[in-house]
């Protein structure tokens, strides 16, 4: 396999690697934000929002990501909502919505582990409910759930491979294109190596944080 820097094939693969990275980082950030909002709505949003967000979380957790991505790609396409035909955008949105349902469960369990009196004390000191959530409860809740969130980010990086199912040009798709172009199956091995360069350091980091927090208590 010819892997010189100027090789067109290698450039395509490198592009796929970068797209996987972008997809991972973008979806991690988006799902953290969305998941935290959903968690807050579930805890403090009242009965209607609680029911709605719970329905969202249960439905997205218990259905395959591939089906969700296929649905979303069709939904966003010009024939329907006419938002985008870009598979990368559909994959980014789909991965974020899917992972946010797990993030919200993790953050919610973090919120429930914070002593209720913290909230009462903050309100008693004159903070509004939003301020108390933002400055008192959430910082403690998020710190508790850093290991589960790190765990979800590992899962998310692996799930980006599924975006190749809607023809987003990430690493696995690039490997597939190169395989059919060069008839060299080894591109898939390269993709495996590519994923290892992301998941193994991440898993090491998350494991380390988990152990450190376990000792700190």
């Amino acid at each position: 396999m010819n892997l010189l820097p100027l090789d067109e094939n290698a450039a395509l693969f490198a592009q796929g690697y970068l797209t996987t990275l972008q997809l991972s980082i973008g979806a991690i950030v988006l799902s953290l934000v969305l998941g935290t909002i959903v968690a807050c709505l579930r805890v403090w949003g009242g009965a209607v929002l609680e029911a709605l967000t719970r329905g969202y979380v249960e439905f997205f957790r218990n259905t395959p990501l591939l089906v969700q991505l296929l649905f979303l790609a069709v939904l966003l396409a010009p024939a329907n909502l006419n938002i985008t035909r870009d598979a990368f955008v559909a994959a980014l949105i789909g991965l974020s919505i899917y992972t946010a349902s797990y993030v919200s469960e993790a953050v919610r369990s973090g919120i429930l582990s914070v002593d209720l009196r913290q909230m009462e004390a903050a309100r008693g000191l004159g903070l509004s409910q939003l301020e108390a959530i933002r400055f008192v409860v959430l910082p403690q809740a998020i710190r508790t759930v850093i290991p589960p969130l790190g765990n979800l980010s590992i899962a998310l990086v692996k799930n980006t491979a599924i975006a190749s199912g809607i023809a987003a040009n990430e690493m696995l798709k690039a490997a597939g294109v190169l395989e059919s172009r060069t008839l060299q199956f080894e591109w898939y091995y390269l993709a495996v190596l590519g994923y290892w360069t992301m998941t193994i350091p991440l898993a090491w980091l998350v494991g380390r944080i988990e152990r450190r927090l376990a000792y700190a208590r």
């Binding site: 597939g176 994923y195 290892w196």
Partner: peptide, 9 residues
Amino acid sequence: ATPILTILL
């Protein structure tokens, strides 16, 4: 550490 879809392919 490998995505399941990659293993399947």
